[in-house]
Structure formats: C-alpha cells, structure tokens
Design a protein around this nucleic acid. Structure first.
Lengths: 198, 198
DNA sequence: CCGGTCCTGGAATGGCCGTTCCAGGATAGT
DNA sequence: ACTATCCTGGAACGGCCATTCCAGGACCGG
C-alpha cells in the first residue's frame, strides 16, 4: 500500500558522506546536501532525521566502507611487517591522489569537527581507534612470531605509535603534502622497527 | 587629535584565539567573540577587519605565543634525546590537563578547519611544519653527535616522523585521551630510536 | 479501478550569521 | 575652550541556516 522511496538511501548517504568528509560538518549545509544528492529537503529529513543524525550516519558509513576494509586487509594479512607497509602505502595513495586527494581522513577530521562536544561521536572515534590499534598490534605480533622483529618489542605501545603516525599522515595530507615525503617518513619509521636491537 | 582605543587589542585577540582554538573557525561566531572579549562589533571590525582576518591574526598569535616558545626551547636545548623527550612531555601535559585540555593544537585543527580552502592558512601551516621539523632534526643531529644515536640514522625522515607523531598526539587529545597512554606511546617511539642498531 | 498510505516538491518560518552604517561621545593638540 | 579626529554603542541589513508544514501526486494491494 505505501509508496516506495524514489531514490537509493545509501547512494544519497554516500554523497552526504563525501560532502561532510571534504568540507566538514559545520561548513556542509543541508542545502548543499540536497544539491549533491538531487533530493528534496523533505526526503532527507524523513529518511535520515536532522543534520546531526545525517552526519552520524555518514560517519558510520565512512567507517564501514572506508576504514573497515583497510583494517580487515591488514588484520587478515599474515605477512607481518610487509602488511603494515602495504597498509601505509595504500593510505598515502588514497590521501594524496585520486578523487579524495587532500580530503584527509573523515575520522581524523571528526576529532576536530565534533569530538569536543558530542559524546556519541567521541565514542565512535574511540572505538575506531581501538580497532585500528588492535589490527596493527596483531600484525606486529605476527612479525615478532616470524622473526621479523625482536621478541622484546613493546608491541602494544608500538601499535599505538603507528596509529598516531597514521593520524599524522592524514592531517598533513589536508594541505596537499607530497606522497613521496610521507612515504619516506613511514619508511624511516618502519626502518626503526626493523633495525631495533634484540 | 585622535581618540585612543579603550581596550588592549592583544588581550582581545587572545580571547578570540581561545575561542577559535577550542571551537574551530566555523563554529565560533563573531557574536561569541564580542561576548568573550566584551567588545562591540564595531571595535572588532575596525581593529581586525572581517572574520577571516581575525582568525588569521588569532592563528598567528597562537603560533607566536604557543608554538614558538616550545620550538625555541627544543632548538636551544643541547641535550639531544632528553630535549625531545621533554618536548613531548610538555606537549602532552598541555593537551591533557590544565585550562586547554581537550582543545588539541590550533595548528592541527586548522589543517581540518581551513587548509583545504585557504592558501594563506596553508602557507602558514607549511611554514610551521617546516620549523618544527627543523627543530626536531637539530635535536636528533645533536643526539647523534653526542653518541646517543647511531650515525647511520636518517635524521631528516625521523624528524618528520616525530612531527607526525606530535600531530597524532594532538588529534587524539581532542577526545580526552589519557596522558598516560600518550606518554607510553611516545616513550615506545623514542625507545625505538634509542635501541636502533649502529 | 479504487483507496489508503506514504513519498515528494516547494514554500514558509524563525533564528543566527557576518557585515555595515550612523549618531554620539571621548580625546588630545592648539 | 575649541575643533578635528577617531572610537564606541546599538540598530539595521540581507543572506543563509536548519527545520517544519502542507498540498498534491505516486504507488501498491485488493
């Protein structure tokens, strides 16, 4: 009996995600979302609720479609250090070239955008942080098991340091930093791991 | 002949700086600045120009009053690694406790706030980045000279990596991350440096 | 074909935004 | 004391913001 939606909600959410990702929650207006999606205000509000809910949904979509795949690839890659290197290589490529170059990471952007005020966003960011750290920690443990790293390495703290390094890459990429330079930086860091004395 | 200003411009600028620092350029309104400073709109506009100029002035003041002192302390400290450690310790203390806890770093925030659109901001961020990297690089060179680090260390890339680590600390501190955890992370990273094989 | 249900388009609303303007008052040199 | 100069206060402006509302039309089961 009911009418049916004349558009694909997830497709619209992707447009909104891109807008919030690139311009931030404050500067991306509902009007801009309607233009980007081709939807009417009414459809947006009945489908997603207000702007806050729309931003949260977009942020969750970003995590689901952008962060999780990369984290899973890292977590399921059994090669240890090379897996970590590939993770960073792909990260830098995504940040410095292609359609989303200079947009940074929506998760990192959200730290500045809304973490200070909104507890729900903060919880999401904390969970994402924990997951990425765990994935990197697993890769480091694998590297230790395979003899690529010294058994005495503080893998937890090192994993945390690599997460912060990734955040730094994301921050710098917002100014259009060169991929070469970022790659050198990551290489140097992983080189430190490699060369650590037992 | 002229009348004289009935307020201290730099004092007003400091209030504006704090507002922009904490809430970001987009969410801090001129109205909020007038309340925080006690000034009238007219005085703000005749003294600083529009909002963009006010934000730029606040950002410059932040660099001058917050970043430069820490960088100078680091650059003039001749102890090598301990100087770097102290730099990070002070950074984390400033980010996680006291009046500005949870505000992050205004420079890093500006990467998300306005780097994408405004070339002038971008130039400022690039210059700040270069200066911090140079200061860390000098400290690393000192550490190598004093035998604290292996002569083969790639000091430039390592300095860049430390800058990105600092950015990561600033990002995470926006969610109220624990100082202990951040300190452990920094300790682990500096430990990697320390233990690098010659 | 028909009816109830829901989606859609567009206008309307109140509020806050950044910015400007002008009259009035304080100031400092003459 | 006079006057030219500049600062100050407050009102006013147009524009965009997020949000709401309602009428009209599209759909799907019967």
């Amino acid at each position: 009996m009911p009418d049916i939606k004349h558009f694909d909600p997830d497709n619209a959410l992707e447009r909104a995600e891109r807008l919030f990702w690139q311009h931030g929650a404050a500067k991306a207006s509902i009007q801009a979302v309607t233009v980007a999606t081709g939807l009417n205000r009414s459809s947006l509000y009945t489908t997603f609720g207000g702007k806050r809910e729309l931003y949260m949904a977009a942020l969750r979509r970003y995590v689901r479609h952008r962060s999780w795949p990369a984290q899973r690839r890292l977590a399921e890659d059994g090669r240890g250090l090379p897996a970590i290197r590939d993770f960073f290589t792909a990260l830098i490529a995504a940040r410095c070239s292609g359609e989303h170059a200079g947009w940074g990471c929506m998760i990192v952007n959200a730290h500045v955008d809304g973490a200070h005020t909104d507890p729900e966003i903060r919880a999401l960011l904390d969970e994402h942080h924990r997951q990425l750290r765990d994935a990197l920690h697993a890769a480091l443990e694998t590297a230790v098991e395979q003899g690529q790293l010294s058994p005495g390495l503080a893998t937890e703290a090192t994993a945390e340091a690599l997460v912060l390094l990734a955040y730094g890459v994301n921050v710098r990429s917002r100014t259009g930093a060169a991929a070469d330079s970022l790659l050198d930086t990551v290489t140097a860091t992983l080189g430190l791991l490699d060369g650590a004395c037992p």
